[in-house]
Design a protein around this nucleic acid. Structure first.
Lengths: 207, 207
DNA sequence: CTATGTGAATTTATTCACAGCA
DNA sequence: TGCTGTGAATAAATTCACATAG
């Protein structure tokens, strides 16, 4: 398996494959072909095969892929083969919803700490997590938490990012509607639901 | 201005330009160059110019773009030049957060109706919107609401989509972690925060 | 005969380089 | 001189077509 540059788009699709494969596993599938998977998730079979072939040859000709094995392989590629703890900052409407969001478990994520700067919220327990004061963010250093989730208002996002980075975080999921500046080694993925909604009308039929 | 196929990626970036331009307008900018905008949002100047040039020549050589005029142009391109009403289905944790989300106003969106199937939630008022029973979804027909936001659990997402489409919705923002089937004329944009979080570890430094 | 894996062809998007206008 | 708009060049991603393996 010689070195290859992996397309970002491939990495974007792998979590989708993982989700659907997990579904097939639960339904009792032992093997699955790229064509079956394809029908389920709306991606061409050859796209799936090429994506996977970037990392080696996982399938068996004439049979397809071993579902359980493929799940393990993809988890390894995405570095999801170990439980990953995350810390969330900003326990407002959105932050609380993210704290309670059930979808992270599938990928091995666990939100293990939550912070806010509002004294009314500190001490509250949401989904078994006690909200702490933001001044406690440095304590993440001793806790093996490398992922930060930012759900604070725009004005506070940069300072929050700085605090998280100083506490050893190297990956950030940013819900603030702005870019944040971080050292090169830190990866930021931004989610902005308004941005996605804003391009919907363009694609809608006019009247 | 001859016809051109507009790249999807351009459409994805336009709402970002719009957001930042609005910021510059508030700061009192009258004109702005592609270079200034570029520094602010982390996209190359020539990318911005090419994106805009797809739709015509908006700028003035040596000066740049008239901020206010450019905002109007982009809104028109994205069909955001009129207030757009949306209906939300599924007033759980995530749905409530989306209902309260302040970021939609910038793009002229207003959530004008909310539905749930849980009798405990029906009648509740969140952000001035009274939650109605899902059986009332067909009433959207008379209300000029063409956008649906789906924040229900996975099992309910397809049936919700069907109900919305039957009520005249032609654009859907889907927060359910699955694909939904709709007629070709209906555009669906799916947001899945777990999917985005899942590709973060891949890009993070190992130890 | 079925389904993978992969080079080659094609399509799509980004970057460059520069002509031309104020 | 400064900045736009755009054809040309480059890079990236998708699609195809088929050799190959069970």
């Amino acid at each position: 398996m010689p070195y290859r540059k992996i397309p970002d788009e491939t990495i974007r699709r792998l979590p989708i494959y993982l989700r659907d494969l997990t579904g097939f596993l639960k339904q009792g599938y032992k093997n699955i072909s790229s064509k079956e998977l394809s029908g389920h998730l709306g991606v061409n079979p050859w796209q799936i095969r090429k994506d996977l072939s970037n990392f080696g040859a996982f399938g068996t000709c004439g049979v397809g892929y071993d579902v359980e094995k493929l799940i393990r392989q993809i988890k390894k590629i995405l570095k999801l083969d170990t439980i990953r703890k995350a810390a969330l900052v900003g326990v407002g409407n959105l932050g609380s919803a993210v704290l309670a969001y059930p979808g992270f478990a599938l990928y091995g994520f666990e939100i293990a700490a939550a912070f806010d700067n509002d004294s009314k919220k500190i001490g509250k327990v949401i989904n078994k997590i006690t909200v702490q004061d933001v001044s406690k963010i440095p304590s993440l250093k001793n806790k093996d938490i490398r992922i930060g989730i930012i759900t604070v208002p725009r004005q506070a996002s940069q300072i929050t990012a700085d605090a998280l980075v100083n506490a050893g975080v190297t990956g950030i999921l940013n819900f603030s509607p702005c870019r944040i500046k971080v050292p090169k080694k830190v990866k930021v993925i931004t989610i902005n639901i308004a941005l996605d909604l804003a391009r919907l009308p363009y694609y809608m039929p006019t009247r």
